[in-house]
Nucleic acid binder design. Structure first.
Lengths: 342, 342
DNA sequence: CTGTTAGCGCTTTCAT
DNA sequence: ATGAAAGCGCTAACAG
């Protein structure tokens, strides 16, 4: 069907070897020959068969993205990351292969599977910190970049924003608006970011001279419904709360709806700050104040480190905390004076 | 690094051929031999090299998804479709490869590129109807499924919902609520769906005995901003409008905001119906009544047709219009009585 | 039942 | 500067 090197060789009147060298820009081909070969290739609409190239050169032509459980996939989060991965991969002439799996087996199996598919490395998203392959992954001799799970190894690193700082910014923002009774609706404890965000919340409170009360903290699971439950619970138990830091936008929207259903105005009665800056954060009412992570940059960085490892066996992968920024919108406002007077 | 057939052969004490056959479940291998070989393979942690398999069998191991222009990528729309594609591909032991490109060249080039990468077929999303490769694509001898652009060929088909019906449902819903002055904010004319949705709007109006006024129709470009402009424009020119059918949720949210900014209550003063049912439709206020397309099913169907063509050269691809359904939420309501009395 | 031979499309020594 | 030969890891006739 498609023209092969042999076809070009025949048409141009040279050996396959010479044609290969000419097309690959080797220096040991006379200009005249090269020109003829180029023409023949052009005429036949020749494109090298990457599969064959890959087999002979042992060089992979793609990177993989593993997304654990489909939910991860459904939020815009990953979409932007994919954009970033793809742009970076494309720039390095690599393809991007997608995998969704319910559960990864052992680290060995994952790596085997990647190798068998000719991947040069993989980004893995959606791992829980209690997964035991995490300990083994960084020891594999295969380039891996994890998303939001800290690992270090000669061929492994991770990408994340500075979640502690992000949470602190959220709290500081609320404090600066006069709030002192600030609750936290956190994600589930299987996610590394939950621990980080809680840490940031605690730091922010402490640095502002505020006590940390266990009863101010609700553990959700990143679902909208859990945000709803969190708001309901926290405000029933602690009616004095005037602000909530919610560790994801989706939960924050749930909280928003619940608060409004409970007759609490946002932000008049209670302020809400989310995390992520997903696109709907802008569309809800009031628009959500939130901590923004730039997932596109996130993806690019992940790919950059991965490709660094792939192309250079000596490359030492680095981890940098990406910045995250407070985006101030309508869901946070100054505490009501009567509250301040308490 | 990874074990090869040869390694297994050596360990098991058989020829490479026999090992290959044993592992591939051919019947002409004695049970005893097979068992020994299986053990050896197990011991070596052997996994077949797909790249080699692909080269020798000429059978591709992946399908591609081309997404034209990154915007397409950023909405949740495509994410769900990817989920569907992936699940279906995985079920057929195929991988999914992603490509984002600004512009496709000729149909020949696209197909060449796919072949060179070992793809068995491709789904292409984001094409405009004025793109001239569309005429050529269905003639290529390569399995192609387009998203929302009608094509037919021995190796080509497309997936879409019944946009005409969807739009008609929207209009009929509004009519059933008593609305008679119904405007349309449409997408740009480069999208096939825009024409279909307009058709459905016109049918719906006509079937309800309502006149179609050119001034009731605004051509946006699917952006939120254009939804805003559309609402502004339509209501300035036609203050008698009591309802808007907006051809995408994102534009609908823009319209919503603009209407509220203009002091028009939704749905008391004016009803709004969107299209897509993206996730934020549920989170805006009021929650958006909209026409839902199930993008996950969309993706599965696209993959199913594609894989049908790939696995069976004689397969005649079909097009089925997927159903789309009205999801009734808060943004549409009965027309105000004074309006009815006009 | 099993092994030998050939070849997928390409790159790469090694000669010439 | 060019070509012949070998081989990447695998499968598929074809013999035995």
């Amino acid at each position: 069907m498609a023209a092969t090197l042999k076809d070009v060789a025949r048409l141009a009147g040279f050996s396959v070897t010479t044609v290969s060298r000419a097309l690959n820009g080797h220096s040991d081909v006379s200009e005249e020959t090269r020109k003829k070969i180029m023409e023949a290739a052009q005429a036949l609409n020749y494109v090298p068969n990457r599969v064959a190239q890959q087999l002979v050169m042992g060089k992979s032509s793609a990177i993989g993205l593993y997304s654990l459980d489909r939910e991860t996939f459904q939020n815009q989060f990953i979409t932007l990351m994919i954009s970033g991965l793809m742009d970076e991969a494309t720039a390095h002439d690599l393809n991007l292969m997608l995998f969704a799996t319910q559960r990864l087996q052992t680290a060995e199996e994952v790596v085997m599977q990647c190798r068998q598919r000719g991947l040069g490395g993989a980004v893995i998203s959606g791992l829980r910190i209690d997964e035991d392959l995490i300990g083994h992954l960084p020891q594999m001799d295969f380039p891996i970049v994890l998303v939001d799970v800290p690992v270090h190894g000669p061929r492994a690193t991770y990408v994340s924003v500075d979640n502690v700082l992000g949470a602190r910014k959220a709290v500081e923002h609320l404090v600066s608006l006069g709030h002192r009774n600030i609750g936290l609706i956190n994600g589930h404890s299987g996610a590394w970011v939950s621990h980080q965000r809680r840490l940031g919340y605690e730091q922010g409170m402490r640095d502002s001279g505020l006590a940390i009360k266990e009863s101010y903290i609700f553990e959700g699971d990143f679902s909208k419904e859990s945000g709803r439950r969190g708001a309901q619970h926290l405000l029933t138990v602690n009616p004095e709360l005037t602000a909530l830091f919610v560790a994801s936008d989706l939960m924050a929207v749930g909280a928003l709806e619940q608060l409004q259903a409970m007759g609490r105005g946002v932000p008049e009665d209670i302020s809400v700050v989310g995390f992520d800056d997903q696109d709907f954060a802008l569309h809800v009412s009031p628009p959500l104040t939130t901590i923004r992570q730039d997932m596109y940059v996130f993806g690019r960085l992940a790919a950059r480190e991965l490709i660094g490892m792939i192309n250079d066996p000596g490359y030492t992968p680095r981890h940098v905390d990406l910045p995250c920024t407070l985006v101030q919108r309508g869901s946070s406002g100054p505490v009501r004076s009567k509250e301040v007077l308490r």
